[in-house]
Amino acid sequence: MLEKPTWKSTLKGFLYLLPALLILIIFNIYPIIRSFLMSFYTDYDYFNDIVHEYGFDNFIAIFQDPNFITALKNTGIFVLGVVPISIFLSMGIAVLLNNKIKLAGFFRTIYFLPFVTSVVAVSIVWSWIYHSDYGLLNYFLGWFGIDPIAWLNDPNYAMPALIIMSIWKGLGFNIIIFLAGLQNIGEQYYLAAKVDGASAWKRFTNITLPLLSPTIFFVSIISIINGFKVFDEVFALFNGRPGPANSALTVVYYIYQKFYEEWQFGLASTAAFVLFIIIFIFTIIQLVIGRRFVHYN
């Protein structure tokens, strides 16, 4: 039982909170407000931190900027490319790993390895794998009679290259979450289904899938949100460029360009604000709709 709050306990409480609160206010809460305001800066002098004019011009400007539209489109394609494949693969692997096989722990470890590694470092490794003349991938494709592909220099292949690497990088995380979800499904359902004579496939579609649906939903939302934030991979894979002919220009990359390369703080903030709205919508979907439509046991 906690004692009732008093002024003394309030002082004590805030004293304990002080270090964390100080940092969080300066670097989390204040910037949220500031970022919102900045998106309305139409005339801003960064060096003297003076705002000459506020307005909606930035919103109009970025939606008229073909690059921003490209960035939105590319990010959308990226998410659509990564999320379904990654979920399909990771769920499949998790189901296989959940089969009480002996080396499950060993396999889990291996699949999880990319999670702990630097995106920048693995992107550089992948840029070597994607090398058009000496890359491993083209070498393997050569076994099947496929001609070398300029993965990183052909605008048609830059996005697939980014997607393949991102799936590889994020697979382990999804597998772990799916395994946790699978382990929450009671053995009794499977035993009952076996007694009823359901085949392995029937058991998967009638028990595993519905009971795993909250996990699938959770992983989807997390993957979508993370997909919209992709940056490091692009930067490192294409050596500090947004892919050939902006073919891998993503929203965060656009923000980075506007802000760090062009010093357009207002435009960058507006783009960040749009990103926030997109992510916010998915977060709300997760919080609200998820509870209603998904099968929780």
Binding site: P31, I32, R34, S35, M38, I255, L275, I279
Partner: peptide
């Protein structure tokens, strides 16, 4: 998302 905080934090 942290990416949104990037610019104001840089200014700070």
């Amino acid at each position: 998302p942290g990416e949104v905080l990037l610019i104001p934090n840089f200014v700070t």
